[in-house]
Design a protein around this nucleic acid. Structure first.
Length: 825
RNA sequence: GCCAGAGUGGCGGAAUUGGCAGACGCAGGGGACUUAAAAUCCCUCGCUCCGGAAGGAGCAUCCGGGUUCGAUUCCCGGCUCUGGCACCA
């Protein structure tokens, strides 16, 4: 008998069912008002050439959830696409002479085959590649709408230039002064570029977080820091001899301690203030201006400054204060000028001590008294205001309010909020991106392309030499254009869009990927939105996830949708590590899923990757660890094959279960409850797999002790349930086992099992007995026994007696079914 | 420096509401089957001590305190690691 069991041929099984799902369009969906919808999204991959284990982890999580939701009766949208524009394709073109599109399409085909070999349940009819002109034309359409509304604009400003990628970058793509893609140090250049006015939405980005209770706090926190809203005041300091300096401060309560003012070296007033100074001073100024602005931003340069020779008046104290220029004041934040309060600010203190400027304490801490002349470090906390005329004795908090009101009444200041967020720089000087749809006309200036002329298509014949700028500039037929306004000759914009534009709205396109006259079909989007669950890497917390929220808000203002947030629940999955390091191409420690599939099969890979760690934490890839899930799958396979012929026909409801039969049935229903909860609420897929392993172990333990028709029914139920519960994790093997168990339909259309509370209940339970908090014994009590019965059982127990006898029972804490704690003296 | 998260056997991890710490798996040890190996199956597996054994005692969730009948879980203080931000006025 045992040697007749058919072997588990995973390769053949997996390929057969993958073909079946594909041929039958199993996972193709459409709007259906009769079922609740579930939109599950994963971050679309960049087609670099290979699916890596990090992608696999992301997509395994969503695949389990979508298969589960489908069995629970939901109409599930589970799409996939390609973030197909971007630099690597162009770099490959320069290196190998293939066109970026050829390289990209080739990679997409290869990676698509890899995804299909993993058995993911995508609706492939909705596949979107952002390099398709019918897709990126809508990037252009959105751009024109934003141009009309003033959200898109062109401006000259200091920008991040990556000398390796040969293009400018947005602020958040140059974190820490490094290019997000190639890690080169960026340089600051003044250039005229295209921006999107994301700062118009900075308050909405913060305030709408109220609608995101199912987003992890750490992501929201990162976004809050990035927007960097800080409330304060703007105050004018009149300059002796005319004009005034506007400063931003969050600590107006310290203003009587402002003993000098500092301007950023780039501040527009500096040149006129220093017009009369000597050459040495001008040289110093030039040097400060020449310092690397990146390093200055990062605080990596020593504080340095010079006196302008001019004075201003502190509008509160009337005091005459010197005006300085300092490299630690940044033009890009606030007003580019500060009032310096050395007694109560670290930076001002350091600067004042270096140049011997006066330190004047005006805030007294709860303990001790400060003296500006002798203090060795500033006091930056709140306190009680002193030496501040009519404001003395107030707390910092109250003083802030009163001083703002005072400044406002006298007309030299007002409440003001400053933000860290900058507008989104979207132009790139590269070929493989969405052309920005404008032309430059000598007569009409910057003019948007007519909507009817979209898309502006990338010319296929651009030269990829790797030298001298954007290849688009060299395509005469592309650059030469006609002005839509006057019909005269015009020059076409050759900058293309940041690829983060593509990924800011792709999830709307999935709802109606073929729509030709609009970015998407409104009714279809209304059916599927919002996205119920979005799974992806946390590295996009302040990039993609901010841009996407912004884009949705703009779409709302354009009247395309009527909500302000696209994603209900965000689930950032952990990374995959190997030998303690993040797995990455550059480290050379990647694992190719293809090799693993060849050796163990896709089902084992899926199980392992989900079992090894909870999805939100990083997981360590282990060569031996994968053996466990593989053995488990084989065990399930053998169990099913062994009993499949005898479990038909099944009759589960027969009375008269043996003790073993009842135990098996109990375990089955307990497992249903656990697995369901683990997937649906907590997304703890590792413990769901562990529960299935437990059920399998229990079935092996009990199989030889089963007798009679009732037990046979319980075994049939156990096998059916095990296969159903396991199917989202290991869909191919389960489809085969489901057939072998005599079911004609595909598993994906079967309803998810429901736990029977009555069947789960134990007849008798083991209860721990503590004496004064220490475990002394374990006793059996009938399920649902009274507290008195628990207590009696505990006191009767032979190993409890020695600890209780001769002492007084003060109290008995009883948690029925779990624990008894006897407190004795 | 600031913010967030984490710290549990040799390893990955479990403990869902304050209630039996170590589920499940890997690795290890012992055994069965086999001519042998692989595969499979069974037993064992936190540390220390007492005992021939059955068994028993003590310690143990980063460290130190606290609350509680009871703390991996809550509170206070500290250490370490990871991620993010950082001259942002």
């Amino acid at each position: 008998m045992a040697n007749e069991i058919k072997p588990y041929e995973f390769d053949e099984i997996e390929r057969r069912f993958q073909a079946k799902w594909r041929d039958e369009g199993t996972f193709e969906v459409s709007e259906n008002a009769s079922r609740p919808k579930f939109y599950c999204l994963e971050m679309l991959p960049y087609p670099s050439g290979d699916i890596h284990v990090g992608h696999v982890r992301n997509y395994c999580i969503t695949d389990v959830i979508t298969r589960f939701k489908r069995m629970r009766g939901f109409n599930v949208l589970h799409p996939i696409g390609w973030d197909a524009l971007g630099l690597p394709a162009e770099n490959a073109a320069i290196k190998r002479g293939t066109h970026p599109e050829t390289w990209t399409r080739h990679n997409i085909a290869g990676m698509k085959a890899q995804l299909q070999r993993l058995g993911f349940s995508y609706d492939w009819t909705r596949e979107v590649a952002t390099c398709d002109a019918p897709y990126y034309r809508w990037n252009q359409w959105f751009f024109l709408k934003m141009l009309e509304k003033g959200i898109a604009y062109r401006a000259n400003s200091p920008v991040n230039w990556c000398p390796s990628c040969l293009t400018v970058l947005a602020n958040e793509q140059a974190e820490g002064g490094l290019c997000w893609r190639c890690k080169s140090t960026v340089v600051i250049r003044d250039m005229e570029q295209w921006f999107l006015r994301i700062t118009d939405y900075q308050d909405a980005l913060l305030d709408d977080m109220a609608e995101l209770p199912a987003w992890p706090e750490r992501v929201l926190q990162q976004q809050k820091n990035w927007v960097g809203r800080s409330q304060g005041a703007e105050v004018s300091f009149p300059i002796e001899g005319g004009g005034s300096i506007r400063v931003f401060t969050t600590r107006i309560d310290t203003i009587f301690g402002a003993t000098f003012s500092v301007l950023a070296p780039e501040h527009p007033l500096v040149d006129s203030l220093m017009a009369d100074t000597d050459n040495a001073a001008k040289e110093t100024l030039a040097r400060l201006r020449g310092q690397d602005r990146r390093a200055r931003l990062a605080g990596q340069v020593d504080k340095e400054g010079l006196f302008t020779g001019r004075y201003a008046t502190n509008p509160f104290s009337g005091e005459r204060i010197p005006i300085w220029v300092g490299n630690f004041v940044l033009m890009g934040y606030g007003t580019g000028a500060i009032m310096a309060v050395p007694a109560h600010d670290e930076r001002d203190f350091e600067f004042a001590r270096k140049y011997g400027l006066r330190v004047h304490a005006v805030i007294q801490p709860p303990t001790g008294t400060l003296d500006g002349a002798t203090m060795t470090e500033p006091y930056t906390g709140p306190g009680v205001v002193t030496g501040s005329a009519g404001f003395d004795g107030l707390t910092s908090e109250v003083a802030v309010e009163k001083m703002i009101a005072h400044a406002q009444a006298r007309g030299f200041g007002a409440a003001k909020t400053a933000y860290r967020l900058k507008d989104w720089l979207i132009s790139r000087q590269r070929y493989w991106g969405t052309p920005i749809p404008v032309v430059y006309c000598d007569k009409d200036g910057v003019v948007g392309v007519r909507e009817s002329d979209l898309p502006v298509v990338l010319p296929p014949d651009a030269p990829f030499t790797g030298e001298g700028g954007n290849p688009l500039e060299k395509v005469e037929s592309f650059v030469k254009a006609t002005c839509p306004k006057c019909g005269g000759p015009a020059r076409r914009e050759t900058d293309t869009m940041d690829t983060f534009v593509d990924s800011s709205w792709y999830f709307y396109r999935y709802c109606s990927p073929k729509t030709g006259d609009a970015p998407f079909d409104k009714a279809q989007v209304r059916y599927w939105f919002p996205i119920d669950l979005y799974v992806g890497g946390i590295e996009h917390a302040i990039l993609h996830l901010v841009y996407s929220r912004f884009w949705t808000k703009v779409m709302k203002d354009l009247g395309l949708i009527d909500w302000v947030e696209p994603v209900t629940r965000l689930f950032p999955q952990g990374m995959v590590h190997k030998d303690g390091e993040v797995m990455s191409k550059s480290k050379g420690n990647t694992i190719a899923p293809d090799d693993v599939i060849k050796r163990y099969g896709a089902d084992t890979l899926r199980l392992y990757i989900l079992f090894a760690a909870p999805p939100e934490l990083s997981m360590e890839w282990s060569e031996t660890g994968i053996e466990g899930p593989h053995r488990f799958l084989q065990r399930v396979w053998r169990l099913v094959q062994k009993h499949a012929p005898t479990t038909r026909p099944r009759d589960i409801a027969v009375p008269g279960l043996s003790e073993n039969g009842a135990a098996l049935r109990r375990k089955v229903h307990q497992t249903i409850a656990r697995v369901t909860g683990d997937i649906d609420e907590r997304i703890h897929l590792n413990t769901a797999v562990a529960a299935l392993m437990e059920l399998t172990n229990e079935a092996y333990r009990l199989e030889d002790g089963l007798t009679g028709p009732a037990d046979a029914g319980a075994l049939a139920e156990a096998l059916d349930t095990l296969v159903l519960l396991l199917s989202p994790f290991a869909p191919h093997a389960c489809e085969q086992m489901w057939q072998d168990l005599g079911h004609p339909k595909s598993l994906v259309d079967e309803p998810w099992p429901v736990a029977d509370e009555a069947a789960m209940r134990e007849t008798s339970v083991e209860v721990a007995v503590q004496v004064n908090g220490k475990i002394r014994a374990r006793v059996q009590v009938p399920a649902g026994a009274s507290e008195e019965a628990h207590k009696a059982a505990a006191l009767e127990d032979a190993s409890v007696r020695p600890h209780v006898d001769g002492k007084t029972l003060v109290k008995a804490v009883i948690v029925p079914g779990r624990l008894i704690n006897l407190v004795v003296k």
